[in-house]
């Protein structure tokens, strides 16, 4: 096999790639922040005894966990504007799909994390005279969040990878920019190799850091 690798076009179009990289960051950051922020209330609703809180949250989580993200993004881009009065651009559609997906998964992380704290901790706070909210914010969450960090990091890594799905609705993130460049310069082999390397460079360091953190948690017991 004597294929002559030629990366010159990629150097030439590096501006387009940089835009894609920034858009990938932007999409991932927005979805991560919103997803984690709304994941907590949804997770707490799943923990609630009242069916009025519990049932809608459960339905939401199951719908978004059990459908492909690609379908969700396509749905928000093509179907949502027809059944709603809003016009929606590619960024908003992708952000909606990925955020709601992140809410669904992170709510489960919150729920599992909170449930992993011994019942006696709630009781100790309650016996001191704390309100339910104080028990949660002063006693439970500070302990639970520490245990949730690895799971959240994995979610963040997953999210960065999933942003590439936004290329199907022509949002100009890394993958979409690469597709554009490879069409212009006829260099799909080099181009997608470089995209793979960029994603790897983005994701590998935090992924390794998580593994280390998990090991240190195990050691601490």
């Amino acid at each position: 096999m004597d294929y002559a690798w030629d990366f010159s076009a990629i150097v030439q179009y590096r501006g387009l790639l940089l835009v894609g990289l920034l858009n990938t960051f932007k999409l991932a950051a927005v979805c991560l922040v919103l997803g984690l922020a709304f994941g907590l209330p949804v997770g707490l609703m799943r923990y609630a005894r009242s069916p009025w809180l519990n049932w809608p949250a459960t339905a939401f989580v199951e719908v978004f966990r059990n459908t492909p993200v690609l379908v969700q993004i396509m749905w928000f881009f093509f179907a949502f504007p027809i059944i709603s009065p809003f016009d929606i651009n590619a960024f908003t559609a992708a952000a909606l799909g990925l955020t709601l997906n992140t809410v669904a998964f992170s709510s489960e992380i919150y729920r599992a994390g909170i449930q992993s704290i011994a019942k006696g901790q709630w009781e100790a706070g309650k016996a001191l005279g704390m309100t339910g909210k104080q028990q949660l914010t002063r006693v439970i969450l500070p302990q639970a969040l520490r245990r949730m960090i690895p799971a959240f990091m994995n979610r963040a890594i997953e999210l960065v990878k999933m942003t590439s799905l936004a290329s199907v609705i022509a949002y100009g993130e890394l993958m979409h920019q690469a597709k554009t460049i490879s069409t212009i310069a006829f260099n799909p082999i080099e181009m997608y190799t470089v995209v793979a390397l960029i994603f790897f460079a983005l994701i590998a360091p935090p992924a390794l850091a998580v593994q280390r953190y998990e090991k240190s948690l195990e050691r601490r017991g």
Partner: peptide, 23 residues
């Protein structure tokens, strides 16, 4: 619950498993 919270503050309780806040 609103009435019970201040009552709990006036009655101390010690548990079998201590339940200290580990953080």
């Amino acid at each position: 619950e609103r009435d019970l919270v201040p009552i709990r503050a006036r009655v101390g309780m010690v548990f079998q498993h201590f339940n200290l806040f580990p953080h």
